[in-house]
């Protein structure tokens, strides 16, 4: 299988879906002429033209809302947020309009929109640009939330997201855009809501997603080599719908759980997971559920300290040792 970057995988998914369905349009700040702020959409304007690849002004509430309105008429907009952090200025459009319109209309109206872009810390851009809002988004019934960790997953999940009839929020990661992974040349899709066991093991289950999958894999290698601890890593891939069954099956195997997430701890995705695991697999647990999250403060700028604020392989290692201890 060819090795391509996460960035290219997202781009290929966009190109294939643009090719497949004339209703798909890509919109966002700098997506066309500039070739994408992170070069995700590079070359799409040349291939699909300005009616399908549309540069928007810096006007998130306006253009996201406009995309939602167009989706009600059957257009399938894939809207790029340069950073998911900018969702806050379009919050009413995203979480009042897109999330609620089907319900408030008694099921008469669909909103087949995808909003995608990076949501991560670690790039020394400070608190305003480092939000990871998957928990906030997933708190709203009516929406779907996807956080892919690898090139393969990003492509297959984005294709499913674009074909989905419900609003899907797709959270990428600037730190992963350059990471390469094996991606088949033939077409494939990955269903939303299907977790993936990224590593099999028997002593500890790490439940995680996004970039923390990679931190967890790095820590797991050290744990095996230096501590003889066998770690299973469950990558959720999708936050809502949630594949809790794969998580529970792993817990039944290892009996110990560490949740690793790039989230502020209060009411995070991990909080929900911990509730569900204790509720549905209480008898399987040999100890309390542990969690490693972002250190609870706005994102610090200072580059070396930001690494310590976020989950990283060393922090995962320490938390894993505590969890099995």
């Amino acid at each position: 299988m060819p090795l391509i970057t996460y960035r290219e995988a997202v781009r290929h998914a966009l190109a294939e879906e643009l090719e497949r369905d004339k209703n798909v349009v890509v919109m966002g700040e700098e997506v066309a002429q500039f070739n994408g702020a992170y070069k995700v959409t590079e070359g799409l304007l040349a291939k699909f033209g300005p009616d399908r690849i549309v540069d928007t002004p810096i006007s998130e509430a306006g253009f996201i809302g406009m995309g939602i309105g167009a989706s009600m008429l059957g257009v399938r907009p894939v809207m790029e947020l340069m950073f998911w952090s900018f969702y806050s200025v379009a919050f009413d459009q995203i979480l009042n309009n897109a999330a609620n319109v089907r319900y408030m209309s008694g099921g008469q109206i669909n909103c087949p929109i995808v909003i995608r872009g990076p949501a991560n810390g670690g790039t020394n851009v400070g608190a305003t640009h480092s939000h990871t809002p998957e928990n906030v988004l997933a708190n709203h019934p009516g929406v779907k939330v996807v956080v892919p960790a690898t090139a393969y997953d990003a492509k297959g999940l984005l294709k499913s997201a674009i074909r989905d009839n419900d609003p899907v929020f797709f959270l990428e990661n600037t730190m992963l855009y350059g990471e390469k992974g094996e991606v088949p040349t033939e077409e494939y899709v990955i269903p939303l809501g299907k977790a993936d066991v990224k590593r099999e093991g028997s002593d500890l289950t790490i439940v995680t997603y996004g970039r923390c999958v990679h931190h967890s894999l790095a820590a797991a290698a050290i744990l095996e080599k230096e501590h003889d601890i066998s770690v299973e890593i469950v990558d959720l891939r999708t936050i809502r719908p949630l594949d809790i069954d794969t998580v529970l099956a792993s817990v039944a195997k290892t009996h110990r759980v560490l949740i690793v997430e790039e989230q502020k701890p209060f009411a995070s995705v991990g909080s929900q997971l911990a509730y569900m695991i204790q509720r549905e697999a209480f008898d399987e647990l040999d100890g309390p559920i542990h969690r490693l999250a972002t250190v609870d403060a706005p994102a610090i700028y200072s580059p070396p300290v930001e690494i310590e604020q976020l989950p990283n392989p060393q922090r995962v290692l320490k938390a894993a040792l505590e969890a099995v201890g």
């Binding site: 089907r102 099921g107 269903p191 299907k194 719908p241 949630l242 594949d243 569900m276």
Partner: peptide
């Protein structure tokens, strides 16, 4: 919990997996 998701209202055509409601 009806009319929340197109997929949960059209289970025969549902493509996603996992829990939609909590």
């Amino acid at each position: 919990q009806k009319d929340v998701y197109w997929e949960s209202d059209n289970p025969a055509e549902r493509k996603s997996q996992g829990r939609l409601f909590f």
